[in-house]
């Protein structure tokens, strides 16, 4: 009876281990982004984008951002 209980426990443990192991190994891992700040800078003059300006042209030299 004790043997049977131990076998059942082992089987149960193995099933749970399989499920958890499978979840870890089969899930695609993606690079995680960290919290932080960045600023769009003009490739031509290096100026940062001031407030109330758009993302099309640099406010300082008129160079196109994209």
């Amino acid at each position: 009876m004790t043997d049977k209980t131990n076998k059942d426990d082992d089987k149960e443990k193995s099933l749970l281990d399989d499920i958890l192991g499978n979840a870890i190994s089969s899930t695609n891992k993606f690079d995680e982004a960290n919290a932080g700040l960045e600023t769009k800078k003009c490739k031509s003059c290096g100026a940062a984008r001031p407030s109330d300006t758009d993302l099309q042209y640099c406010d300082f030299c008129g160079n196109q951002f994209y």
Binding site: E32, A33, N34, A35, G36, L37, E38, T39, K40, A48, R49, P50, S51, T53
Partner: peptide
């Protein structure tokens, strides 16, 4: 988010966990 001192527009990325 705009800096009050230099008026530069910063883009804040909260990171994957916060997202």
């Amino acid at each position: 988010t705009t800096c009050d001192y230099c008026q530069t527009v910063n883009t804040f990325e909260p990171g994957t966990k916060a997202r």
